[in-house]
Write a protein that binds this DNA or RNA. Structure first.
Length: 329
DNA sequence: GATAATACATTC
DNA sequence: GAATGTATTATC
């Protein structure tokens, strides 16, 4: 059961979706004629604005996901602060045409789809990790719950519940079916969460819903070093071994090829990922390489549908680009 | 054939 | 020297 399949079918989404997303994340200028969708999306993403701000808040306050910056490993507990991934940033600029693209747009729609699930029983949302215990060591030791994120999330929910309907109508059958598939997948995958895992799955994750995507993908905007930076101090260290193991497990679980994950999520090559997964260096010995692990870690924090979206959508994008090239030539 | 692992080269 | 990419090889 390859999750990607569901998304892969939606060819056009990659194209229009991108622009849409672009707009949403930034100017909120809904592209074309998708009135209903647009409006709904806009309102949701409208969020984009608030999302952004919320996001900052959320991320910054998020114990495990503060992107504030790399604080001295020695300092704090066991948490890590996911930083802006700067090292990769420049590069992404050059490669924007393919993967590493912000998927925010589509994500928005996903948000709509998943809204009830994610919001409903937040407790179950991310607790499917059978062996999150390992992570627990470092990652699970999240200092605290993130009320802020939850709050912002709740905010969305209000929107979403309404939007959901709208989007369903607005979206074409194609997308609808796509989402359905994904939805199905998740209902299957997210199933019975042996919530033992990852720190406080219940607390975290939610806030990543919509806004997060951009960051998750390679060429996000540098996260505000504001609060996150400040708060990040207490969040350090990623247990690279655990992260590696979990990534391996997740990739297997969803039948995600290393190459795809490496390129889409980490913006790295398959070989690099393989090496990192097999020979994860201790956090303390990592330098710029921490960014890559942070991305992995972050990805692990994502709600599953978002994770898949990151992979699939970008994949779609790549495909779209390819087909475009073909058609041109 | 697709994916993963490895070796080596390159960049910073 | 660390991090990564590319090319190649191994594995399934």
């Amino acid at each position: 059961m390859n999750v990607q399949l569901g998304l892969e079918t939606s060819e056009d989404i990659s194209g229009s979706g991108q622009e849409l997303m672009h707009n949403q994340n930034r100017t909120l200028h809904p592209p074309v004629p998708r009135s209903s969708l647009v409006s709904s999306m806009t309102s949701v993403l409208d969020g984009s604005d608030y999302h952004r701000s919320d996001h900052h808040l959320a991320t910054s306050l998020h114990p495990g996901l503060g992107f504030g910056g790399d604080s001295p490993p020695a300092s704090a507990n066991s948490y890590t602060t996911l930083t802006p991934l700067q090292p990769l940033h420049d590069k992404f600029h050059h490669h924007q045409h393919h993967q590493c693209v912000p998927v925010g747009n589509v994500i928005g729609s996903f948000t709509l789809m998943r809204e009830d699930r994610g919001l409903g029983p937040p407790s179950n949302f991310y607790s499917h990790y059978p062996k999150d215990i390992s992570m627990g060591q470092s990652l699970s030791s999240l200092p605290s719950p993130n009320l802020t994120s939850m709050h912002s999330y709740g905010h969305h929910s209000g929107h979403l519940s309404n939007e959901k309907v709208v989007s369903s109508n607005g979206f074409d059958a194609h997308h609808h079916s796509m989402f359905s598939r994904i939805d199905q997948h998740f209902s299957r995958e997210l199933s019975p969460p042996p919530s033992s895992g990852v720190g406080s799955p219940n607390n975290m994750h939610q806030h990543h819903y919509v806004h997060h995507r951009a960051e998750m993908n390679c060429r996000q905007n540098p996260p505000m070093p504001t609060q996150s930076t400040t708060l990040s101090g207490q969040l350090e260290e990623i247990n690279t071994k655990d992260v590696a193991q979990r990534i391996i497990a997740e990739l297997k679980r969803y039948s995600i090829p290393q190459a795809i994950f490496a390129e889409r999520v980490l913006c790295r090559s398959q070989g690099t990922l393989s090496d990192l997964l097999r020979n994860p260096k201790p956090w303390s010995k990592l330098k710029s390489g921490r960014e890559t692990f942070k991305r992995m870690w972050r990805w692990l924090q994502e709600p599953e549908f978002q994770r898949m979206a990151a992979l699939s959508l970008q994949k779609e994008r790549a495909r779209a680009n390819q087909s475009r090239k073909k058609s041109r030539s």
